[in-house]
Amino acid sequence: MEYVNLDAQVGDLSGVLDPSRYLEHLPSIAGDLPLGARSFATDTDHYDFHSRQCVKDLTLRAVRGAGGEEMEIEFQHNCWKHDRDLLIRYAGVSSFVIDPADEDGETDLGTVILDEILPHRDGCSHEIACWEGTLTIVCRDLQATWTEADCSSRS
């Protein structure tokens, strides 16, 4: 991540998630982001850790269309925090990298920590940091859609 700090130091506490540098930089780059990416990145709930539409704590559920020009990545809610799932559709994909790359094609990267969307000559780059690895997608644009989730099975 270029601006989002996944290991900030606050007083004596280390390992703090801090998107503040990105949020400070976002107004100066928002106009350079494609429309869908701009809408998702600048949504006030996106980096609000108390919001039900914050990406933090979502779980990667599925990656569809990897290697193609059109892709979808589906994230599952965490019933303790979210009441919606997130589906991101990527158009004009020019690059898709999973780090670390899994030999058997699985994408079990675990829970989302945070993400960062930046302008790119091909449209935008979207880096998604999870506890077990990172997804990076470069595309012409993306469309993020929150959909109702079933949280009736909370224990």
Rank of each mutant, 00 (worst) to 15 (best):
E2H: 07
Y3S: 13
N5E: 15
N5S: 13
D7P: 02
L13C: 13
S14R: 13
V16A: 10
V16Q: 11
L26Q: 07
P27Q: 12
A30G: 05
G31L: 09
G31E: 10
D32L: 14
D32A: 14
L33P: 09
P34L: 12
P34V: 13
L35D: 15
L35S: 15
G36Q: 05
G36V: 12
A37C: 13
A37W: 11
A37N: 10
R38Q: 14
F40H: 11
A41R: 04
A41S: 11
D45F: 03
H46Q: 14
H50S: 14
H50G: 14
S51Y: 01
C54Y: 03
V55S: 04
L58W: 01
L60N: 01
A62Q: 08
R64N: 10
G65E: 04
A66C: 01
G68D: 03
I73V: 14
Q76H: 12
N78E: 12
W80E: 15
K81A: 11
K81Q: 14
D83C: 05
R84V: 15
L87Q: 11
Y90P: 04
Y90E: 06
G92Y: 00
V93D: 00
V93I: 07
F96Q: 12
I98W: 00
I98T: 06
P100D: 00
A101W: 00
E103Y: 08
D104T: 12
D104Q: 06
G105D: 02
G105V: 10
E106I: 06
D108G: 10
L109R: 11
L109I: 11
G110H: 14
G110R: 15
I113L: 15
E116C: 06
L118W: 03
P119D: 02
H120D: 07
R121F: 10
R121C: 07
D122Y: 01
H126C: 10
W131R: 15
G133M: 07
G133N: 05
G133R: 10
L135Y: 06
T136A: 09
V138I: 03
C139I: 04
D141P: 08
D141M: 03
D141Q: 08
A144I: 08
A144M: 08
T145G: 10
W146G: 03
A149K: 09
S155D: 15
S155T: 10
